[in-house]
Design a protein around this nucleic acid. Sequence first.
RNA 1: GGGUCGGUAGAUCAACUUGGUUAGAUCGUCUCCCUGUCACGGAGAAGGUUGCGGGUUCGAGUCCCGUCCGACCCGCCA
Length: 451
Amino acid sequence: MSVRTLSVEAVSKVGAEVTIKGWVNARRNMGKIVFLDIRDRAGTIQTVGVPSQMTPESVERLKEVRLEWVLELKGAVQERGAKQKNPNSPTGAVELLIKELKVLAKAEPLPLDLEDEKIGLGIHLDYLPITLRSEKYRALFKIQAEIVRGFRDYLNAQGFTEIQAPKIVAAAAEGGADVFEVKYLKNKATLAQSPQFYKQIMVGVFERVFAVGNCFRAEQHATTRHLNEFTGLDLEFGMIEDHHDVMNLETELLRHILNHLDKTVSSELKLWSYIRPELPEKIPYFKLREVQELIKKETGVDHTNEPDLEPGEEKWLGNYVQEKHHSDFVFITHYPTAKRPMYTYPDEADPEFTKSFDLLFRGVEITSGGQRFNDYNQLVQSMKNKGLNPEDFKFYLESFQYGMPPEGGLGLGLERLTARLLGVDNVKEATLFPRDLNRIDLQLSPPEYKQ
RNA sequence: GGGUCGGUAGAUCAACUUGGUUAGAUCGUCUCCCUGUCACGGAGAAGGUUGCGGGUUCGAGUCCCGUCCGACCCGCCA
């Protein structure tokens, strides 16, 4: 009989003869007897090697075993003595008495301590293939996977259809300069900075759509919240009244995700400094100019003519709404029309400003969204106002020529959401394999490779 | 792209302020001891061209210049 998982249920059958396979998570050599903590996808269990109970070959093999070796162990599950139970482990009441030990893979000595909290970010990133094995990082990326699942579950339940947006796109993009060129293709192509055009086109097909996918930004930034490749959680839907429909949807979407995390990864959340975010019935929202007036009134800093908030002001506002409104989230609406992309819908009452919004979570921007132009002629005019040539966007414009309902949507940064949720300072720590200016899997020019 | 701080064993740091003999500590690694540990414990050992290049000096980890690398801040954004 073979146990295929170290889940509590599977290893708790005292007396059962089982075979388990896993990595050596810890090794405690007491001289004659040796304890090995074995880890697999579902958990860990203590195993104990007593020479008199093992085959002679297994006794010899056990002496060689080190951390991260992969073993196949055959033995009997036994209840531990009263003084030997470990209340800190879910499998702490039992252990496996080893009879046979087979080595499936050896491992070199580790270059660092996997559970050491003080490893520098640069070293952590250089050794990701092994540092990701630590309990904390396994938990982090399990949580991230459940955020994505929560996103999908909620939107599917609301009648959204998941789409796969292309990542190789035509050169004429939303913004302009900040894209990676794809030189291989004859017609000039770039990597997509977002699925924006394609999710809008697909509103004309499915009415409600969402996409989970990589977004590429060719920007020379070096901050704790930027990446050259990140995961966009995007959605777009038709038949809306205005941007408030999008904001309300995001509020309920976030509520679902938080509840989902409580249900699925509560023990993983405890490994990080997770404080459940305060999410009121209605997330407070302010117009950009209102926030700037507020900042002027409260702090004396006059930025009432700036087109956006500075990162320091975003942090200030995050604290402010936390205290005054008991919310870790705040929407800022009505960014200047001049600063927003050409598809952004202006407020009819004040066309200098848009029916767009950003969502700040604990002082960091995690979402941009809003209502979009759905009228073909207005959209073409907006392109011209921005100095863009509608000819370059013919393909995109087809969907607006042939019947596009009032629509809007948003994009949510998965890594930023994860980082803020868990109290992680640098977004790269919340990214499985972060890409930035100087690093793709390793430093691009490590000192030892020079010359 | 602009700015700030930093780079010393495999990891995390000390020595730098005020230049001075053999650059220390903890964890890890290796060897030995240990039958109830769970961050096991005990004894011992190995491990460094102080990122790299140049300069000042009788003497540089320490001071100066250059260079590479990293972290952070700004612009921009999710």
